[in-house]
Deep mutational scan, measured.
Amino acid sequence: MEQGTVKWFNAEKGFGFIERENGDDVFVHFSAIQGDGFKSLDEGQAVTFDVEEGQRGPQAANVQKA
C-alpha cells in the first residue's frame, strides 16, 4: 500500500485526487473508500491506498484513512 495526502475531494460529485509520496496525483472515486457510512475525504487528510489501472489511467483503490 502507498501513503498519500488528499489534495482535494468533492463530496457532491464523489471524486477527487490524492497526492502520492512521489508527488504525482492519483484519481480517487468515493466507491474506493473503505468503511461504513458516508464516504468522503477531507483536504490534507492522510490516507493509505493501492493503485490500479482504470479506464482513464491510474486510480486509487482500497482507500483507508490513516
Rank of each mutant, 00 (worst) to 15 (best):
Q59Y: 15
V51T: 07
M1R: 13
R56G: 09
P58I: 10
R20N: 06
P58S: 09
D50S: 15
A60R: 00
G23M: 11
D42I: 14
V47K: 00
G4V: 01
F49E: 00
A46Q: 13
M1E: 09
Q59G: 04
V51D: 02
Q3Y: 14
G35C: 08
I18D: 00
H29R: 04
G44R: 07
D24E: 12
V63A: 03
F30R: 09
G4H: 01
A66L: 15
V26G: 00
L41P: 02
F9L: 03
E19S: 15
Q55T: 13
G23V: 05
K13E: 04
D36K: 13
D36T: 14
V51L: 11
N10V: 05
F49D: 00
K7Q: 03
F17S: 03
D24H: 14
A11R: 15
Q34E: 09
E12D: 11
H29C: 05
Q45G: 06
E2L: 14
N10H: 09
G57Y: 05
P58G: 05
V26L: 13
Q59F: 14
A60Y: 01
F27L: 04
Q64T: 10
Q59M: 10
G35W: 11
W8H: 04
E21A: 14
D25T: 12
F15N: 02
Q3P: 06
D24M: 12
E43A: 15
G23S: 08
E52P: 03
N10I: 06
I33K: 01
D36G: 11
G14C: 03
Q3C: 10
V51N: 03
N10A: 08
M1W: 09
N10Y: 07
I33T: 02
G23A: 11
V26C: 05
Q34Y: 09
V28Q: 00
V6E: 01
G4N: 01
T5R: 15
K65V: 14
K39I: 07
E21W: 12
V51H: 04
F49P: 00
G37V: 06
S40R: 11
F9I: 04
F27Q: 02
A66F: 12
R20W: 10
G44A: 05
V63F: 01
Q3N: 12
D50A: 11
V6Y: 01
A60N: 00
E12Q: 15
A60T: 03
Q64M: 12
V28N: 00
E52G: 07
S31I: 05
S40C: 10
N10L: 08
E53G: 07
G4R: 01
P58L: 12
D24W: 11
E43Q: 15
E52I: 15
A66K: 14
F15Y: 15
G37T: 07
D25L: 14
F30D: 02
G57M: 04
W8N: 03
F27R: 03
N22I: 11
F30S: 05
G16V: 01
S40G: 08
F30G: 04
N22L: 10
F38N: 07
R20T: 08
E2C: 10
E2M: 14
E53Y: 13
F49Y: 07
V47S: 00
A11E: 08
M1F: 11
E52S: 09
D36H: 13
Q55M: 13
V6G: 01
N22H: 12
A46K: 15
P58F: 11
G37N: 07
G23F: 08
D42C: 11
T5V: 13
D24Y: 11
R20P: 04
F27K: 02
E52D: 08
F49C: 01
W8L: 03
W8A: 03
M1T: 14
V6L: 05
G23L: 11
K7Y: 04
K13C: 07
N62H: 10
K13N: 05
Q34L: 13
A11Y: 12
G54F: 06
F27V: 02
Q34R: 10
A60K: 00
F38S: 07
K13H: 10
M1N: 12
A66G: 10
F9G: 01
F49N: 00
S40L: 08
K7S: 05
L41G: 03
Q55P: 15
G14H: 03
V28K: 00
G44F: 06
G4I: 01
A46S: 12
H29T: 04
K13R: 13
F27W: 06
I18Q: 00
S40I: 10
G14T: 04
A66E: 09
F15M: 06
E19F: 15
E53S: 11
Q34F: 09
A46I: 12
V51I: 14
H29N: 03
K13V: 08
R56H: 11
T48A: 07
N10P: 02
L41F: 05
N62Q: 05
W8T: 03
G57E: 03
T5L: 10
G16W: 01
F30C: 05
K13I: 08
T48G: 04
Q34W: 10
S40W: 13
G35Y: 08
H29I: 04
K39H: 07
Q3H: 14
W8S: 04
Q3D: 07
F15V: 05
T48P: 01
G14K: 04
G14E: 02
F9Y: 10
E21T: 14
Q55A: 14
F49V: 01
G23R: 10
A32W: 04
K7M: 04
R20H: 06
K39T: 06
F17E: 03
Q64W: 12
Q3M: 12
A60D: 01
G57L: 04
V26M: 07
F15A: 02
E43H: 15
E21P: 14
E19H: 15
E12K: 15
V26Y: 04
T5N: 09
F38V: 09
A11I: 13
D42H: 15
K65A: 11
